[in-house]
């Protein structure tokens, strides 16, 4: 995208499309359902406005297309390039998952080794504490960024950068709409 404003424009357009399709699918919804639908469509719009170029947006699309009820919404929002994106994202995501599991196995074996080794010299160094702290926080961050489980540290940080910027744009758009609708309501 060329500029933040055009990104927001794209996001809004896609979001409105998604909302409309949501509305056409289900007429009467409770407030929690409505909220869920709104959030899902906003997330999907954000991801598709990002055009599936980043890992997190692909993860969002893949997650949404896995669930049956949101599949139609994905198709509606993504429109013409839906198939391409979904395919690409699911492929990339599954391979990422595979890599992740293998990594986990590796980590498990490594950690068992380390446990044995660590038990011998019974001192805890400050550097190891710091390392553990960083690792813990990295895991936390991986849980926050969609699709972050499969990323290595470098790409995780890059994706976090991108994700933060996109989230900001999404919040701007949503706040715009929320303000407008609230004012509309108050009259």
């Amino acid at each position: 995208m060329a500029s933040p404003s055009s990104f927001k424009q794209e996001l809004l357009k896609k979001w409105v499309l998604g909302l409309q399709s949501c509305c056409s699918m289900a007429k009467d919804m409770g407030i929690s359902e409505r909220k869920k639908a709104i959030k899902l469509s906003a997330d999907l719009a954000m991801a598709s406005a990002r055009d599936g170029r980043t890992c997190w947006s692909r993860a969002v699309i893949a997650n949404a297309s896995k669930q049956n009820e949101s599949k139609i919404l994905v198709q509606k929002i993504l429109g013409s390039e839906c198939e391409r994106l979904v395919k690409a994202s699911s492929i990339g995501f599954s391979s990422c998952n595979k890599r992740f599991t293998s990594k986990r196995i590796l980590r498990r074996s490594c950690s068992s080794l380390r446990r044995i080794r660590r038990s011998a010299p019974k001192r805890v160094q400050a550097s190891s504490i710091a390392k553990r702290m960083v690792k813990k926080r990295t895991q936390l961050l991986k849980g926050l960024v969609p699709g972050g489980e499969s990323m290595d540290e470098f790409s995780l940080i890059e994706e976090t950068l991108d994700y933060i910027i996109s989230l900001r744009a999404q919040i701007d758009v949503m706040r715009c709409l929320a303000d407008a609708s609230e004012r509309l309501k108050s009259q």
Binding site: I31, K39, Y163, R168, I171
Partner: peptide
């Protein structure tokens, strides 16, 4: 990131609360 995500949650909740219909 958490605060941003919470903000999204909050805003979608607000939108859902304000608008009786989803569109």
């Amino acid at each position: 990131v958490q605060s941003l995500q919470r903000q999204v949650e909050f805003l979608s909740m607000k939108l859902a609360a304000v608008n009786p219909r989803i569109d």
